[in-house]
Design a protein around this nucleic acid. Structure first.
Lengths: 221, 221
DNA sequence: ATGAGTGTTTGATGTATATCAAAATCAATG
DNA sequence: CATTGATTTTGATATACATCAAACACTCAT
């Protein structure tokens, strides 16, 4: 998990023997309200997290992929605050949180790492607030595609050609728009030659143009 | 800061002698990009945090009041990710983060407390994502007023009569709507007798009705 | 293969909220 | 106390996105 640990630290880290679990597509990693015990490191696969409003409305709060840690919202109340659902067959490492806390008291570098992970999640959420609060549909979708592109690239996959694991409906929920608007906007992008999209396969033809789209609102150009 | 500490722990906690600072209204507690050193506990007053997009757009990400901790977004990158600005004359306690980490290695209850605070911020942000992604202007504003109400109540102030420290513009930025829409919606609330609002003084006449407003979308009633 | 069911696209229309604009109110300062 | 600038309210209009609806394409199981 952490990369910047010294040799002896590393051995102690082994104590944090995570338990591996497999989840089928559609399976719940955890449910909102269930007792908090562990964080989960995604080894392979793809998840979404969503919060449900009493009245049935749902909001997708994130899409998580290999190497990312999930479940941190539950620390504050000892119960999970959202659902986590596998979007494809996946493997996760369960990290018992009490062990992690114990160990991070002994290993300052692990402690620092944990704090960074928690903080990174806060920064990510703020980015989404910016997106939801002040961007138009086109910009949101461009930002979304660029974000996926970067994360795939960071994992050694193509930044310009990838497969969407989520439905238009889930993209829309995440970005605060309706599935029809998602579909229309993607079609527009294709229409102007920015991307090719056929079902869930995306090919980005012009990353820079996409980046410029996220930028200033139309009146400012 | 933490309430659930044993006696001897408490003495050690004294080592975490925070440095007190005063800020005038309009003053920056920290700026986006500045080096991260400390978290800040607000003792008195009122702050806002905002992220700025390159192209000038800004998004208010939160309003913080006495007793709340601020600055946690900066842990992940060692630099602040947003601005924090005093909305009235305020006092904060600076908590050097390296000292806090050090001490929380010795005091499990402090460690746990810190983790909870970080996690609570994540949960809060998810709530705002839900609000921005799936609520209408009326619901957002009702949720906003109720949230302020609860937080004032928790501090011993009236939950039904309080003073808004922020402008309509700042409320709008926070809630993802324009200041005119904020103004109009507040006028509507007043029109139907839900609240009285004169400039920045709010009086809530019917908390329950306000609560019901946050709930289901109109078609579902 | 074939059909059922789910997900996607596209069109026509409606509506919530943004935009533009002007007046009214408030706060600060000399 | 008067003046200036910021903030707020309110109205008229525009527009981005939602809604409703129907056709179309996948996926999966029989």
């Amino acid at each position: 998990m952490p990369m910047e640990l010294t040799g002896t630290d590393m051995e102690q880290l082994d104590e944090l023997t995570c338990i591996k679990h497999a989840y089928q597509r559609g399976g719940f990693l955890y449910r909102s309200g269930s007792k908090f015990q562990s964080l989960y490191a995604i080894r392979t696969g793809f998840f979404k997290t969503q919060v449900l409003h009493e009245d049935g409305r749902e909001q997708v709060t994130g899409f998580q992929m290999a190497g990312e840690i999930i479940g941190m919202d539950a620390i504050s109340s000892d119960a999970h605050a959202c659902d986590a659902i596998a979007l494809e067959d996946s493997e996760v490492c369960e990290i018992p949180f009490s062990r992690l806390e114990e160990l991070s008291r002994k290993l300052p570098s692990l402690q620092r790492h944990l704090h960074r992970i928690l903080s990174r999640e806060i920064v990510r959420d703020q980015g989404i607030m910016l997106l939801l609060g002040s961007m138009r549909a086109e910009e949101r979708l461009a930002a979304f595609l660029l974000n996926l592109s970067q994360r795939f690239a960071a994992r050694g996959y193509s930044p310009t050609s990838f497969y969407l694991r989520m439905t238009r409906q889930e993209i829309g929920s995440y970005l605060g728009m309706k599935l029809e608007t998602v579909s229309r906007t993607l079609s527009n992008f294709q229409g102007v030659g920015l991307i090719s999209i056929r079902n869930k396969s995306v090919e980005i033809h012009n990353l820079q143009k996409l980046q410029r789209l996220v930028g200033p609102p139309p009146e400012c150009i």
